[in-house]
Design a protein around this nucleic acid. Structure first.
Lengths: 352, 352
DNA sequence: AGACTTCGTCGAAGCGCTTCGACGAAGCGG
DNA sequence: CCGCTTCGTCGAAGCGCTTCGACGAAGTCT
């Protein structure tokens, strides 16, 4: 491994001159610069990241703290990551993901205090999130994906759930649906303070009320079985439902299965809209799901841009931004067979 | 931020003594150790990772190079990551994931040459993989997940595709199936030298031949539509098929949809086995899929253990190991309705 | 009891870089 | 044409740690 010293010797300049060529911190004549560059090329020189970091007190590494659970990562998350990585690269930073699990706050504290990361993007933020406290105490610049309950002091980027739900409901209402059931995440998730679940719940209530309709929400476990149970519960509470809005990528397959099991066809008998869903998952279903596609890549890019602006710029303003999901109409929504009419029982159709 | 120097002063010892307490590189008396530990606690001291790394020439950071494409990560991959992270933590290393995309070999070279990573686990290895060359040239200790064509010099951990396919075929044959079709990844993927696709193809041929059966393989695009097309092709090539073996998590939902569309029920008319599939995905389908579950977590753990052993130990032997997937029987396989009998046309059943 | 080894600690020399102050050489306004 | 700023470069002082050699004090062996 060639060092800067080797380059300097070969180019007949001082070490500091080589450094200035690399960082551009001071002007260097074109002639000298060329000599240095030639020497670097000849020696196949690569600066040592840790030496740079130690001397400059900045690692130029950004961390993306991403809890990895057994559910895997959807296309939304990977789009987020690639968007973030691209933005980091543009700003001259490396992006690394750290699979910090739920429990180990100490690990997190250590990671944050070791000054290895110039800044951090925290994913899957809960309304009350201890990790935020830990990171703030460690003094690490921070951008949240999602929001804590108190949004006053922190930078965040989040999905505009209010707008997203409103758009989804508007689509369904526009098709003529009146009885729309919202299948949310589980009651436990709701109770744990998971922002998206809470915010969509409130947004759904307000959107439906705004249309003069009755908001029925069902909490579903994140599993196919949970989806089936949720659909049963939905029919129990709203026998005349013609549309299901769901934000639960796992349960939705159970919902679909149960619908088929009851002899109901999608979208003729029941329309289904899946929220915060990637095109890839939407296409897995038959028919492909009309969905609110999350702005994964943009979310990642904007989060990193906010972070690097904070790190490089002088003004360290907080950045707070909401991005709505976009409606993508596929095969799972249509006008209801019986628009706004009262019918008899839940499941007794001529099938499809 | 307190430094080691501050700790030394407060504890009335030299800086090197503090270092020895931290690293255990030399014996320190219990009394002195306690003084130092107390000082550290009082100052809330955290060692600076980059300074340690520079002085010791080891970052104690391991990189997991994981291509992130638009398909997202399945539960298999996340299990792999958590298994790897846990093993790294046990060995005293941090694990970070780097979302190195496909194209940027230069990025990879830079990352590897900057000495920021003590070692690297490379995922999604192709039979001919330039990234392996780049990493080897950079002199970074390396463990592959998957194998290159020439396995002689490198360490790797991989799924035992041969065994896995053999077990899957044995399960089906044991149930009485004779006409089994294997739905693989796409022809393009095959052509690109994707190891799992190639190895399962060969393993399927040999397993079927071993049972005296005719191996029919179909290449399917990684999409629901691809799955539907593949099933159509399968029926064209083997009208009497009673079982489908698939290694394509995306296409399998299309296969299932198409089966239903043809009025064929799973598992009564056709049995389906999904290979290298996580329980979570298997449960998404109705009925839940009998699957060969990949040993994700074990794969991750073993890869990291091999890497850290290489880094810490004196002998740097290469480690090569194969792990089979385990059969998990769920609802998508059963004895064929018409065991080994010739029937008329493809799709004309009394439904399910 | 003398010759060795081991224990516990210290001081100093780096690791490979950035950055500060300094300084000669230009460039420039008056 | 003199003082002043800017340009281009150098040398040196760290950044916060690890690690090596040294050395007195104890213990071990014969």
């Amino acid at each position: 491994m060639a060092t800067m010293h080797d380059v300097a010797r070969l180019a007949h300049v001082s070490v500091s001159t080589v450094s200035y060529v690399l960082t551009g911190a001071r002007p260097i004549s074109q002639a000298t610069r060329n000599k240095v560059l030639a020497a670097m090329a000849q020696l196949d020189y690569q600066p040592n990241a840790m030496a740079r970091g130690l001397a400059s007190r900045r690692s130029r590494i950004l961390g993306l703290l991403m809890p990895m659970d057994e559910r895997g990562l959807g296309a939304t998350e990977t789009a987020f990551v690639t968007g973030a990585a691209a933005a980091a690269s543009v700003a001259g930073y490396h992006l690394v993901l750290s699979p910090v699990g739920g429990g180990n706050l100490d690990d997190l504290r250590r990671l944050a205090s070791q000054r290895m990361l110039d800044g951090v993007v925290l994913m899957e933020v809960q309304l009350a999130d201890e990790r935020v406290t830990v990171l703030q105490e460690a003094g690490v610049p921070l951008v949240l994906i999602g929001r804590t309950a108190d949004t006053s002091t922190l930078s965040y980027v989040d999905i505009d759930f209010d707008q997203t739900v409103r758009d989804a409901v508007a689509h369904l209402v526009g098709l003529g649906h009146r009885q729309i059931v919202y299948v949310n995440h589980s009651a436990a998730t709701l109770a744990s303070g998971y922002g998206p679940a809470l915010r969509t719940r409130d947004a759904f209530t307000s959107a439906m009320t705004g249309h003069g309709l009755d908001p029925v929400m069902i909490a579903a476990e994140d599993s196919a079985a949970g989806g089936r149970a949720a659909l049963a519960a939905a029919f129990a509470q709203a026998p005349e439902l013609t549309a299901v809005l769901a934000m639960n990528e796992t349960a939705i397959f159970g919902i679909l299965g149960e619908l088929t099991g009851r002899g109901l066809s999608v979208p003729d008998d029941v329309s289904v809209v899946s929220m915060v869903t990637s095109p890839q998952v939407a296409e897995l279903a038959t028919p492909a799901l009309t969905a609110m596609t999350s702005p994964g890549s943009a979310l990642g890019r904007i989060a990193i841009e906010a972070l690097t602006r904070h790190l490089d710029g002088p003004a360290d303003l907080r950045h707070q931004q909401l991005l709505p999901c976009t409606l993508e109409i596929r095969g799972s929504t249509a006008a209801p067979r019986r628009p706004a009419l009262a019918t008899s029982g839940p499941a007794s159709n001529d099938g499809g």
